[in-house]
Amino acid sequence: MRGNHIVAEAAIRAGCRFYFGYPITPQNEIPEYMAEALSKLKDGVFVQAESELAAINMVIGGSMAGARVMTSSSSPGISLKQEGISYLSALELPAVIVNMCRGGPGLGNIAPAQSDYFQATRGGGHGDYRTIVLAPSSCQELAKLTMEAFDLADIYRTPVIIFADGMLGQMMEPVEFPENTNPKSSPPKDWTLTGAKGRPGRAIRSLILDPVLEEEHNWKLMRKYERIQKKEVRYETFLLEDAKMVVVAFGTAARIARGAVKRVREQGLKVGLFRPVTLWPFPGTVLGELGKKVKLFFVFEMNMGQMVEDVRIALGGDGDIHFYGRPGGIVPTPLEVSRIISSQYLQKRL
């Protein structure tokens, strides 16, 4: 199945019946699949909104009403959605937002890129908040993480971003969908707007004029973010046991880096791969421990160097960090990356 179709199918299997979106390449197969599939379900609703702004606000409304809701877009459209993502965070509403990232800034192009890393992991909109950011690197993982995203969103009442790119959205691999997520693991939604039947009226709001109360709200969010940081960090390692050099990459770039690592291993270089699966919470602690053992780090991203800042923070001055980036929608080959890796490795005489 195609990556974009997998996301859509996984969402439906996770119980999502409400999709609100606006077309943009390279993610159009998600709304197209949703339009078709949801129309066949009795309780399915698909709305093509007039803009990404409208779509994300429909998501807010649907989430307030207690439903599992999703929207998807690509970089320029995600910029428009940032307003709503800030509100979702402030209002503590669960929702899943997919970004099939493309080259930017501005209109950019439609080729695969990872240039929205900062936007995704730093909050992206106004105010002091974080969103859970999941970065799949294969079609199988698109299925798994999309389904998990709905659980995470419900458990923590927070928006979850699936951060992939045009390449993952367009490519096809065989995929097996995991068993349906267990909705029982999600807490009951006792906060939704349903009409004040036999109870006082309920307000879901983010306007808190009293700075003392707004500060308390921020602390409350922060405590939640700390819980997420403790419990939800995910990463994958490849050939790290004897590694003298660690390549750090996520998503599509990690896929290419993995190929590059295999190549340099054939040359006898002891290189391993560390792949963050959650970009926020970033697996900084694990990486920091790795920095006590390994002295050379190689960060590869399809942007001008964004995650590398998190790696720097995680290592806290330990080890040397070399960065290699290809922005603008360029997808380098494993050979190209492997050449840079081996030249760095050999220069350091490891």
């Binding site: 896929r255 290419i256 190929g259 690592v261 997808v331 080959t333």
Partner: peptide
């Protein structure tokens, strides 16, 4: 398992 779907050569 296929590491990179991108072909170098």
């Amino acid at each position: 398992e296929i590491a990179s779907p991108v072909a170098s050569s």
